[in-house]
Design a binder for these strands. Structure first.
Length: 358
DNA sequence: AATTTCCCCAACCGCGAAGTT
DNA sequence: TAACTTCGCGGTTGGGGAAAT
């Protein structure tokens, strides 16, 4: 219904908080607690609206806030949760002790989102980007019959293809033909090469085989949950009914799935993540390689999965994924990047400058 | 050294949900 | 039940510092 005028009132200060204001707010809340944000600033002697006070407290002054860089484990958790919850920052924050929704949101937008884009992953759906996928399928089919390949025809045939992508496709095809010619000359390659199971292309500029093997996107599958273990947020929220301590997660997995899971529910492999380890050599984006992908899969390192994602009681000081193999969660951005790239075989070849599409 | 550009993040804004009268 | 208030969330902005030129 109607909105309160709140911050619109004249005479209320806006902008960065001073130390004095912080002190006033902290002192007041220490003595009286927080509750009625509407009246709090007046009682605390602050020329701020309640909204501003609440934000300052919850995002900055709260004593249990953990400042500093996000650990690798935290980042992993954020990605996992985001794949399930989407932009429900508060829900994500609730499972990351000491982190605020604002902080997570900022970190997502400034770091994780960019990284996923660089990797050709749609940060919204957590799937390979449709436009790039489509491009790859176009290129793939064209490679089988290059004589039929006609960029201009594509323009008329498929409006889904971004014209800029077609430019990329053209440049890619040009390079590809050159590459194929070189191979032909060098190897006198047999004509079935393109259909072999061996990697189709070898140069640094080649599309990975896995990309070409990916099925064409099925008619605009826009469901953000297409790769998610839960078909909607409610299913995840249902999990809140379960004890926050998932120490017996296996039993829970085996015996107590939420009853409202749909029949076509497709569980996400436990080893589905964006960083991987030795157990992640499989291409998570390639359905053909996911035969063993189920919740009881050959997960040699069960330390991460929904247990680590979902069993983070806010009171627990235990770091997430505490028995992970990486050291103290400290990795540089570059290391994280390369780690991601190694895992996710869906990569955009260098020759395709995808920056324009980000 | 000065200027410009880029990037990060604290804070603001608008909206909807929940609660109250 | 309607009107109103309060709270919380998610998207966006802009100031300031860092990096690049």
């Amino acid at each position: 219904m109607g909105r309160s005028p709140c911050c619109d009132k004249n005479g209320l200060k806006k902008g960065p908080w001073t130390q004095e204001e912080d002190d006033k707010l902290i002192d007041y809340i220490k003595k009286h607690g927080y509750g009625n944000w509407r009246t709090l600033p007046k009682n605390a002697g602050l020329q701020r609206c309640g909204k501003s006070c609440r934000l300052r407290w919850t995002n900055y002054l709260r004593p249990d806030i953990k400042r500093g860089k996000f650990s690798f484990e935290e980042e992993e958790t954020i990605i996992q949760l985001h794949s399930i919850l989407g932009n429900k920052w508060s829900a994500i924050a609730a499972r990351l002790p000491g982190r605020t929704d604002n902080e997570i949101k900022n970190y997502w937008n400034t770091h994780i989102r960019k990284r996923l884009l660089r990797m050709g992953i749609d940060p919204v759906t957590h799937s390979p980007r449709l436009d790039l996928l489509h491009l790859s399928s176009v290129l793939s089919s064209s490679l089988y019959n290059q004589s039929q390949f006609n960029i201009s025809r594509l323009l008329g045939v498929n409006s889904l293809v971004n014209p800029e992508l077609l430019k990329l496709a053209a440049s890619f095809m040009s390079a590809q033909r050159e590459n194929q010619n070189q191979k032909f000359l060098l190897n006198n390659a047999d004509e079935n090469q393109l259909c072999s199971s061996q990697p189709l292309m070898q140069s640094d500029h080649d599309l990975p085989t896995q990309v070409l093997q990916l099925p064409a996107p099925t008619s605009l599958n826009t469901s953000p949950c297409s790769v998610n273990p839960f078909s909607n947020e409610a299913q995840l929220m249902n999990m809140d009914q379960f004890p926050s301590n998932f120490s017996d997660l296996n039993n829970w997995q085996g015996n107590a799935w939420p009853s409202n899971l749909t029949e076509d529910y497709v569980p996400l492999p436990l080893n589905y993540d964006y960083y991987g380890s030795d157990r992640h050599q499989q291409n998570v984006m390639d359905p053909s390689l996911s035969e063993s992908s189920n919740f009881q899969s050959n997960n040699s390192n069960p330390s991460f999965g929904f247990a680590s994602v979902l069993s983070t009681p806010s009171s627990s000081p235990t770091p997430l994924n505490s028995n992970s193999t990486y050291i103290n969660g400290t990795r540089t951005e570059d290391e994280r990047d390369s780690y991601c790239s190694n895992l996710l075989k869906f990569e955009i070849p260098d020759i395709l400058d995808v920056n324009n599409f980000m």
